[in-house]
Design a protein around this nucleic acid. Structure first.
Lengths: 332, 332
DNA sequence: GTGAAAGCGCTAACAG
DNA sequence: CTGTTAGCGCTTTCAC
């Protein structure tokens, strides 16, 4: 066996009897190299099994080929599905996806403070995270590209969800189906650094009832914390004037409504109509009627925008709001 | 305003009137620096707002502080939940988590071939991915640490799931509850490069029936592809000798069984008992009885092991199998 | 304790 | 088209 040294461009250069620059060129701009020498180098390259070391490349180049996603509890399906969209465009542009899950407030701050200055990333996407001016300024001061999802700050491009509109759509749909005793189930108790999409969805939902002069009783609107969900829903369904339709602010809540319905042997949608929000993967698996916010697509768009900004810092910032649409399945 | 240059150790050194080595030291081994000079440097550091550039550090050090996870369809909840475990130990050891989602066979190969040689990572965790000897050899040849989850190869440490045992547990539990007409629903049509956990779960399930001499009719065992699931389950529940209990090889399948049951207005568990596998987050939300494979924990263990191996290449390889346990909720 | 100096492995002008 | 050379920004011996 030959000498087993970590192959570098130097050893390749020696082997091929050329300079390191030539080796670097056949790697980065092959068209600048004469066919003949290129072949010679290529031969040496796979003879030695040479592969450029990523860290060294990154150090010499300005690009790292890596973007990060900062997300609260990244296991929440809606975030994961957006990441799938992000991942797909990153992959096709050969960027790596680094995930920073945050569970504590401190972590958000830590990441938001270090990321723009350590430059271990080419850009960042944040999900449902609030961002204050101080932090934003650090990003712009360091000229660090970022796009925010589900939160708006003028210093960045933002990919937004029109939650109010979503709530209105749900209300109109339910009302259109003839329901008049409706209820709303939202997400209670999210971490402080995360936004609460439920709020806007409720606002929009309620707006329609007000506009149409239909009653949406206060006790038909609940925002249970995760561990209260099942109980609160059960109370709701035990109330004397039990709702005939429920708008759950997320598919996960809708699934839980379905669970309580099953336990109480209520037939869906006959006894109880249920509509969710998000159109997660599993929504189609369980035939849940829901409002799609095009999660995958929104992730793609965010990623595409971030890449554009990385490649061209002059890229104007802008806000994007995706279309919402009702996906009719069999729970309404 | 002062001169706005990217602060480097050089500028800090100049500002503090010391050498760059000293600056580097207060950053990496402060105890080697006299208190006095340390303070001087520290002062210069935050006066200039200096932060070491990650890429340069990585280039000079041997460590990158970054591990990767290679996973088929990373949106599958069971993978995501394992990643949560992985992420938590990585975070507490200040390692970054980079995700390589694979959707095509080619990608698996690409990553498996490039990762060990480009060294953009300190180590890799693969999930439910088959790994052949050629690839394995490249890893050991490059001395690249990896741990495999849900697949066993002697060149690595492996974190395994005893699927057969899981199937047996399910069967014994159902039989113990007095069910004799049981059925099995597995996962059909997974990508070729991914393993099929359903198979082992079925094997174990079936074993018990054979051992006890109880019939598990062939038409009560189905492996539908994703788009067939609902239909096949419905057929199952329409059969003349309809099963009184179903073991679904994953919580997601179980959820779909529940959906069909709802549509057919079957009461669970009275008319139909359902048990799943995985104990995903949502299992508790919907009161699903299931078999826990400690997803989070297994991710943690895999990550801990990988880190050990990264820190000490001599670390002996080993196989870990987590305990399975039944989580009784209200669908059985 | 601290500084000088030699890399790390590659890219990117700059000449020729 | 190809080689020379100067970095990239930090870590790490090795002396003093």
């Amino acid at each position: 066996m030959a000498n087993e040294q970590e192959p570098t461009i130097y050893s390749v250069a020696r082997e091929a009897q050329v300079s390191i620059s030539t080796v670097s060129r056949v790697l980065n701009s092959p068209h600048l190299v004469k066919q003949e020498t290129r072949d010679k180098v290529l031969k040496a390259i796979d003879q030695l099994g040479f592969v450029p070391k990523a860290a060294a490349q990154a150090q010499a180049k300005k690009q790292l080929g890596r973007v990060g996603v900062l997300t609260p509890f990244f296991t929440h399906p809606s975030f994961v599905q957006r990441m799938r969209g992000i991942a797909s465009v990153l992959a096709s542009n050969s960027y790596e996806l680094v995930i920073y899950p945050v569970e504590l407030v401190d972590q958000v701050y830590y990441y938001l403070e270090t990321i723009p200055v350590t430059r271990r990333l080419d850009g960042l996407i944040t999900m449902a995270l609030t961002m204050d001016d101080t932090v934003a300024e650090r990003f712009v001061a360091n000229n660090f590209p970022a796009v925010l999802m589900e939160f708006e700050h003028s210093a960045f491009s933002n990919v937004l969800v029109d939650n109010i509109r979503g709530g209105r759509i749900a209300a109109e749909y339910l009302l259109g189906k003839g329901h008049t005793r409706c209820a709303f189930v939202g997400d209670g108790g999210l971490p402080e650094y995360s936004i609460r999409p439920s709020d806007g969805r409720y606002t929009g939902f309620n707006q329609i009832f007000i506009e149409k002069g239909i009653d949406l009783p206060a006790d038909h609107v609940i925002f249970p914390t995760p561990d209260q969900v099942l109980d609160k829903i059960e109370q709701l369904l035990n109330s004397p004037n039990r709702p005939t339709a429920i708008f759950a602010a997320s598919d996960e809540l809708a699934m839980q409504v379905l669970t309580v319905a099953r336990r109480k042997e209520l037939t869906v949608p006959k006894d109880l109509a249920v509509i969710g929000f998000d159109d997660l993967d599993f929504a189609s698996h369980i035939g849940l009627t829901t409002i799609s916010q095009q999660l995958d697509e929104s992730g793609k768009i965010a990623a595409e925008f971030l890449l554009k900004q990385i490649q061209n810092p002059e890229q104007p910032k802008l806000n994007i709001t995706l279309q919402l649409s009702i996906i009719e399945r069999d729970t309404v």
